[in-house]
Nucleic acid binder design. Structure first.
Lengths: 344, 344
DNA sequence: CTCCTTAATGCAAACGTTTGCACACCTCTT
DNA sequence: AAGAGGTGTGCAAACGTTTGCATTAAGGAG
């Protein structure tokens, strides 16, 4: 149906090669022929067939973006949503398309492996959860550039990765609380083993040390998804068994529960106790009190990942490295005890 | 690098055609040769090249998914997030990949038009906001199946579309409030002109009529994103100028503001006033009081869209039609005045 | 006026598949 | 014994590009 390069050639009376060359600007062609060919392309509404193109020059002009699986709704982890948008944006600027893929562990069906093996993409961005040694080897064997979202646990295979600066973010949170006049922060995490929480714990510890605050391990509370655990720990704070005057929450679900229990216990926020959470999600500012937050720039994280990937695709031979995206504090009511400044 | 069909053929000592035939099961081949070929494919780690394949049989085994643009972060509208996941899931089941594309109005760069013209996809799912007559014509000219997410305003070109049953959802909300013992519902929408809100308004009106409730237009409040407007209207409710005992909110941002203002005004929820919102987003249950909601199944919406698209791709010649996805009520504290039942 | 360089173009192979057609068997019918 | 029908396989063209090599014409240097 659609016009091909041959149709153009025939219409103008030149060879397909010539047409190809003016499309790609890959050889000197007389202005006259160029003009005629361009006109014909316009008239016949010609557009190059990307598959044919890809077949000959061995590229797809498409990158793969693996999404965090685990549950039916792979996107429920809103963490990556902004990143996706950023990645698509950058890809579009460079003339690339973005293929998305949920990483279920179906043995049949499309998997990340398939993406690599069937040459459907020129590069891959994948969450650290979907990464494993076998896959890394496969990609390397196919000389397929890739970037990992999230800091890999063990760095035996050197690779490109991007992550939020969780350590720095937690340090900022501690500093912020202290500047606001609190003096006994406590950190609620879900699971100390997860690398990003491990880094937050590290930041917490170091920051406390620097400011000469008791950095006893009891001030880091690992609560999983356990409502009861959170309730009990907050009760200890309310009753004074646990000597704390401010809490840092690892995410918004934990933050909501903490808030609820603190209010139930009659604590006044921010006067008696301060609360700050990681992830400045849209509704944080509509809570009561509005939640201060460590703003993690997931959009920026996507930008960095995409840029890293295209740098590899385009100039090859880069040296693998990791990058951290800095965080900042969003001041709202929940920590407004002392510090001045405009509220978001 | 990677093994091709020819390499297999050579190794086994047959022609490429034979190999192709055993891959596709497209002719009778002796068990013996089949076995040998399969073995060779294993050994050489053969995987078909999708571009070459697509080139000859004119398909890409990829569908395009256009994302709602407008602002820098196209995904900020979490409305479509679940849909994306569902669509990818179904595509994967059918052996298709999903290409995403933000619809900025760059004249250069990849656009939806490009997707169509360069034969990058076998079908397209796009939000109604990205649809226009020109694009529809283009897709039809290319015989490219497509499905619209969201009900089109004017249905001059018949087409496939899916939407949430906004009218029915709002009827459910009214019924629910009445069953809970409220008798004067009011509806907060952002913009009556938007088709989905128009439908909610219709449902509201009809349901009120059926139950003999004053359906005066004053009971539908168009508040845009205007914080002040919401504050003023709620003040009228609190003061009794506007005679209402329950409110239906069109989305979670509005709901949060309404909740805040009602509490500020000293109204007890749910005793004195009931609140229900559209969109059962994850945090609704962590608010105080936990918010009842009209649950809109965006995952299902994606499933339906994808299924419609593949039905077109695979059996051609379907009759265009629209589909509505039904909603249900999630009962939580904010409307618990009268109705019994388990709380989510 | 001959030789060399350069600009402008064409030819044909290649990328990795699929598929219509043809052919060679082999096994039944009658 | 001869045709009919089926089974298994190969040949070569086609899909729409790109690109190395060859060719031509023209212009400049000697």
């Amino acid at each position: 149906m659609a016009a091909t390069i041959k149709d153009i050639a025939k219409k103008v009376g030149v060879s397909p090669s010539t047409v190809s060359r003016v499309i790609n600007g890959t050889a000197s062609i007389s202005e006259e022929t160029k003009a005629k060919i361009r006109k014909a392309m316009q008239e016949m509404d010609y557009h190059p067939n990307s598959q044919a193109r890809g077949l000959v020059n061995g590229s797809t002009f498409t990158i793969g973006l693996v999404l965090d699986a685990g549950n039916k709704n792979a996107f429920s982890n809103t963490f990556f949503i902004n990143s996706v948008s950023a990645i698509e944006m950058i890809a579009q600027e460079r003339g690339y398309n973005v293929l998305i893929l949920n990483d279920y562990n179906h043995s049949n069906g499309n998997s990340v492996k398939n993406l690599v093996q069937e040459h459907k993409v020129d590069g891959i961005i994948l969450p650290v959860q979907s990464m494993n040694h076998e896959l890394v080897q496969l990609m390397e064997a196919h000389k397929l550039p890739f970037v990992v979202m999230g800091e890999p646990e063990q760095k035996e295979d050197p690779m490109f990765w991007v992550d939020i600066d969780n350590r720095g973010g937690c340090e900022l949170a501690v500093e912020h609380l202290l500047n606001c006049g609190y003096s006994k922060p406590v950190l609620f995490v879900e699971n100390k083993q997860k690398i990003f929480e491990k880094n937050r714990c590290r930041g917490f510890g170091e920051s406390c040390k620097k400011r000469n605050i008791s950095q006893d391990e009891t001030y880091i509370i690992e609560c999983g998804n356990d409502v009861v655990r959170i309730r009990d720990e907050i009760k200890r704070i309310v009753e004074g068994t646990l000597n704390a005057d401010s809490v840092i929450c690892t995410n918004n679900i934990v933050a909501h529960r903490v808030l609820k229990e603190l209010k139930k216990g009659g604590k006044k926020i921010p006067e008696e106790i301060g609360v700050i959470t990681f992830d400045n999600y849209p509704l944080a500012k509509y809570l009561e009190p509005a939640l201060s937050a460590v703003d993690i720039d997931t959009y920026r994280m996507g930008e960095v990942a995409a840029t890293m990937l295209f740098d590899q695709i385009q100039n090859k031979g880069q040296v693998p490295k990791g990058k951290l995206v800095t965080t900042k504090i969003i001041l709202r009511e929940s920590t407004r005890k002392g510090e001045k400044g405009r509220i978001d």
